[in-house]
């Protein structure tokens, strides 16, 4: 097993490791995890983490969460806001999508709906370029987006974004309200 320490450092902070990372180093970690998944899983289980795999990404979970229900709910709700904002910005926003924070700013300025959502996204942050920067930071911190070109300031959405999409997909909505919701 290689890179156990680096992988632990990344995953234990709640970040993801993606197959299509822009960093060669991260791709190597992914390949190592992919090749010896069972071995790594058993190894990290010893220190209380469960290595989970998805469609092109790995992450850690625990048997017993350290976060209480309220905190977990807040995290999920926060990401519903983010994903709703990002999909309004561009409906194709997903793995492989490339963007710059200034693209987001331009889109906000030209779209009333997006403007409204941007104003409510982060409490106290009203400046559009700050909103764009902040959402990009959030995506980058968790490993859903990575810097592609430092000079152009462009980012690419990683395969780990599938995780949050799948998470949204599996939340079941009650049949009785489905018809009430404006499409």
């Amino acid at each position: 097993m290689q890179y156990t320490r680096e992988i632990f450092d990344t995953l234990s902070k709640g970040a993801f490791i993606s197959a299509d990372s822009t960093s060669q180093q991260v791709r190597r970690w992914y390949d190592a995890l992919d090749d010896g998944f069972q071995e790594y899983r058993a190894y990290y289980e010893g220190v209380g983490f469960i290595l989970e795999s998805g469609d092109g990404y790995f992450y850690f979970s625990r048997k017993e969460s350290k976060a209480d229900l309220q905190r977990k709910l807040e995290a999920l709700l926060r990401w519903i806001d983010y994903i709703d904002f990002l999909k309004t910005f561009n409906s194709t926003f997903g793995p492989g999508f490339e963007f710059t924070p200034s693209d987001i700013v331009i889109a906000i300025s030209g779209d009333v709906e997006l403007k409204d959502k941007a104003g409510k996204l982060f409490p106290g942050v009203k400046n559009f370029s700050d909103v764009a920067e902040k959402i990009t930071r959030e995506l980058e911190a968790i490993g859903f987006a990575e810097m592609l070109n430092e000079l152009e300031g462009s980012y690419r959405v990683t395969a780990a974004f599938h995780y949050i999409e799948e998470m949204m997909d599996i939340i079941a909505v009650s049949e009785e309200v489905k018809d009430e919701i404006p499409q």
């Binding site: 709640g14 992450y59 850690f60 979970s61 976060a67 977990k72 995290a75 968790i142 939340i171």
Partner: peptide, 11 residues
């Protein structure tokens, strides 16, 4: 769902 899932990113 929140009760079932315990990913580290929520910690």
């Amino acid at each position: 769902r929140a009760l079932m899932e315990s990913p580290v990113w929520m910690d």
